[in-house]
């Protein structure tokens, strides 16, 4: 997957819970960017855990990685952090803490991969985006079909800062991802999007928390998933607008396509609003491939299975075209296509 990323500004490689590589290019080094193993005194890794898996991670974390982008530094190439599992019976607690200084800009890709092992991972990622900074984060979960993963991600977005968080989930036996986006400073904005595609007996579980703490904050969420075979997905999303967060705009959309009769998808949106001066909306759908869309393509001579592949890839494309690293979009498109063509997920 390194090939997909193209030229990177920095790379950290963690294998079975051990950091095996941590390097930055000259430009990033000269700009004062830091990419390294955390020291015990690092505040960045001291963030309070959000749940019991966060607590487990805090207790057992072995190789926390810290990324620090100084004020005003704007990286043009992405940083990659790859977490790789290739040992059976391993339990790992990856930790990544990213801090963007004021008015800085960066893109970071986290890739969770593995061979076909029977292991468990509970990663925690904290993303701190300071005033007027712009940060794009892509998390790809492509673990093997027997891996269990329970991931936490907390982003804190400062005044006039922007966080773009993208997730893709294709792997794992049971894979949960919780993403909390705290819009702390006035005018902060958070765009959260995800694609997920279950197959076989997989269970994919997403929990999101758009937490509006500061005034005039904006959040926009779009999660799109497909489930085939006997796989299941659950999306649970909460928008919370605090009393002081007047002028909030918060949107949440979750769309699901069921590709087989035995697959199952559920969508659970929630709103908690303490202020009247807000604009909030949520929408969710679960259903099979749209019959009208399929008929339209078929009426132009496109065979049924190909029409369904086009519709599902097109469905995901709304998110994939937004990814900040073209190679990752292309790679994910390929993975989706392979799954549609070869794994018999279409009924």
């Amino acid at each position: 997957m390194l090939r997909l990323l193209g030229e990177v500004a920095g790379l950290a490689l963690v294998r079975n819970g051990k950091v095996v590589r941590c390097e930055l290019d000259e430009e990033a080094t000269a700009a004062g960017v830091r990419l390294s193993l955390a020291e015990a005194s690092d505040e960045a890794i001291a963030a309070p855990p959000v749940d019991v898996f966060g607590e487990l991670n805090a207790e057992h974390v072995s190789a926390p990685v810290v990324v620090d982008i100084p004020d005003g530094v704007r990286l043009t190439r992405p940083i990659a952090v790859i977490d790789w599992l290739d040992a059976d019976g391993v339990m790992t607690f990856p930790r990544l803490a990213v801090r963007l200084g004021e008015a800085s800009a960066a893109t970071l890709v986290e890739w969770y991969g593995s061979t076909n092992v029977d292991s468990f991972a509970a990663p925690v990622t904290t993303l701190d985006v300071s005033q007027a900074a712009t940060f794009s984060h892509v998390a790809v979960q492509h673990r093997g079909p027997r891996v269990w993963q329970i991931a936490n991600q907390v982003s804190t977005v400062g005044k006039d800062a922007m966080f773009n968080g993208y997730q893709a989930a294709l792997g794992g036996d049971y894979a949960r991802s919780r993403a909390d986006c705290r819009l702390a400073g006035r005018g902060a904005s958070g765009n959260l999007s995800a694609v997920y595609f279950g197959t076989g007996d997989q269970m994919l579980d997403f929990r999101t928390f758009q937490h509006h703490q500061g005034p005039d904050t904006t959040s926009n969420l779009l999660f799109k998933g497909a489930v085939g075979g006997r796989s299941r997905s659950v999306y649970t999303g909460l928008i919370r607008v605090e009393k002081q967060a007047r002028g909030t705009n918060a949107f949440q959309t979750n769309r699901n396509i069921k590709l087989s009769d035995h697959a199952w998808a559920e969508s659970v949106p929630n709103l908690e609003i303490e202020n009247n001066d807000v604009r909030c909306s949520h929408a969710s759908t679960v259903g099979p491939v749209d019959e009208e869309q399929r008929f339209y393509l078929e009426s132009r001579g496109v065979p049924t299975a190909v029409a369904e592949r086009l519709i599902v890839t097109g469905f995901f494309d709304e998110v994939l075209v937004r990814l900040p690293v073209d190679g990752v979009s292309a790679g994910l498109r390929g993975l989706v296509r392979d799954r549609l063509d070869h794994e018999g997920v279409l009924s």
């Binding site: 749209d290 009208e292 869309q293 339209y296 393509l297 086009l310 519709i311 890839t313 469905f315």
Partner: peptide, 8 residues
């Protein structure tokens, strides 16, 4: 009424 097919 031609059908909209997003992403295609």
């Amino acid at each position: 009424y031609p059908i909209e097919v997003p992403g295609v």
